[in-house]
C-alpha cells in the first residue's frame, strides 16, 4: 500500500477545504440556523410532536443528512473533477498509486469534510433545540457510512462529468429531491398510503430513518432495513468505481 500517496491526496484535498474555511463552515452553520428559524420556530411551533419527539428536534437528523449528502456528493465530485478539468490528473495517473488508493484518498477526504460539517450542524442545532442521542455510536456509524457512500457517488459523478453543468446536475436534480422526499422534515407515516409506498423506493428514506432512530429510537422503517440499504448502496457505488478503473472510463485512453 502506498500510504504516503493516500495521505498526500487526503491532505491536499483537505487543504482545499481549509483554504475556503469561511465558505466551508460558515455557510452550513448559517443555513442550519435558517432552517431552525423557519421550520423549527415559525412552523414547528404550530406542529404537534411527531412520535413523541418535538418537531424542532425531529428535523435535526434530517437536516444533518441533507447537508452530509449534498456535501459528500459535491466535495467528492469536485475533488476529482477539478484535477481532470485543469489537467493535473496526469500526475495521479502516472504515480505509483493504485485505483483503490486513489479512491481512498479522494473519497476519504470528501467524507471527512462532510462529516465535519455534519458534526458542526449537530453542535449548532444544540443552540436551538434540546435533544439527546440515544445511540451515539450507531449515530456516528451511520454518519460515516453515509458520508463514505455518497462521496463514492460524488466521485463517480466527478469522473463522468464533462463540464461543470453536468457536475451540478445530479446533486441538484436527483440528490436534493430525494433528500427532501426522504422524510427529512416529516415522518412518512404522515403521508397517504400510496405515497408511503412510493417513498419506500427512495433510498434516502432508509438513511434518514436509520439516522433518526440512532437519535430518538423511532423510525419509519426497521433499522435492519436501513443498514441493509446503505450497504447495498455503497456496494453498487464501489462496483461502478471498480468498473471505471478497470476500463479507464473517461480517465485513460
Amino acid at each position: 500500500m502506498n500510504w504516503y500517496g493516500i495521505a498526500a491526496i487526503w491532505r491536499f484535498e483537505m487543504g482545499r477545504f481549509f483554504r475556503s474555511i469561511l465558505q466551508s463552515i460558515v455557510s452550513p452553520v448559517v443555513s442550519t440556523a435558517l432552517y431552525f428559524v423557519v421550520f423549527g420556530a415559525a412552523i414547528g411551533s404550530r406542529m404537534p410532536e411527531i412520535e413523541s419527539v418535538d418537531y424542532g428536534a425531529f428535523i435535526v437528523p434530517g437536516l444533518i443528512m441533507l447537508t452530509v449528502l449534498q456535501q459528500s456528493v459535491q466535495n467528492a465530485g469536485f475533488g476529482i473533477y477539478f484535477p481532470k478539468f485543469i489537467g493535473t490528473i496526469y500526475e495521479v495517473l502516472s504515480a505509483p498509486i493504485s485505483s483503490l488508493e486513489i479512491v481512498i484518498g479522494y473519497v476519504g477526504a470528501a467524507a471527512t469534510k462532510s462529516m465535519l460539517i455534519g458534526l458542526i450542524i449537530l453542535v449548532t442545532s444544540l443552540f436551538f433545540v434540546d435533544f439527546s442521542i440515544i445511540h451515539p455510536v450507531l449515530m456516528l456509524a451511520f454518519l460515516v457510512l453515509t458520508a463514505v457512500s455518497f462521496s463514492l457517488l460524488g466521485f463517480i459523478l466527478g469522473i463522468w462529468a464533462r463540464n461543470f453543468e453536468q457536475l451540478n446536475l445530479v446533486p441538484l436534480l436527483v440528490v436534493t429531491p430525494l433528500v427532501f422526499l426522504g422524510g427529512s422534515f416529516y415522518s412518512v407515516s404522515m403521508l397517504p398510503p400510496f405515497w408511503q409506498n412510493v417513498s419506500l423506493l427512495n433510498p434516502v428514506l432508509y438513511l434518514v430513518s436509520g439516522f433518526r432512530w440512532s437519535f430518538f429510537g423511532t423510525a419509519d422503517v426497521p433499522i435492519v432495513a436501513s443498514l441493509a440499504a446503505i450497504f447495498v448502496f455503497a456496494g453498487i457505488c464501489l462496483g461502478i468505481v471498480w468498473w471505471i478503473f478497470r476500463t479507464g472510463f473517461r480517465l485513460k485512453s
Partner: peptide, 26 residues
C-alpha cells in the same frame, strides 16, 4: 514526468504542490 501543458492547482502554494508530488510517489 514533466508534461507539455502547464497544469497546476491554481490556489495551492508552490511548496505544497511539491510535497504533494513527493507523497503521491510514495
Amino acid at each position: 514526468l514533466v508534461p507539455q501543458e502547464i497544469n497546476l492547482e491554481p490556489f495551492e502554494l508552490v511548496q505544497n504542490t511539491l510535497r504533494f508530488s513527493r507523497g503521491l510517489f510514495g
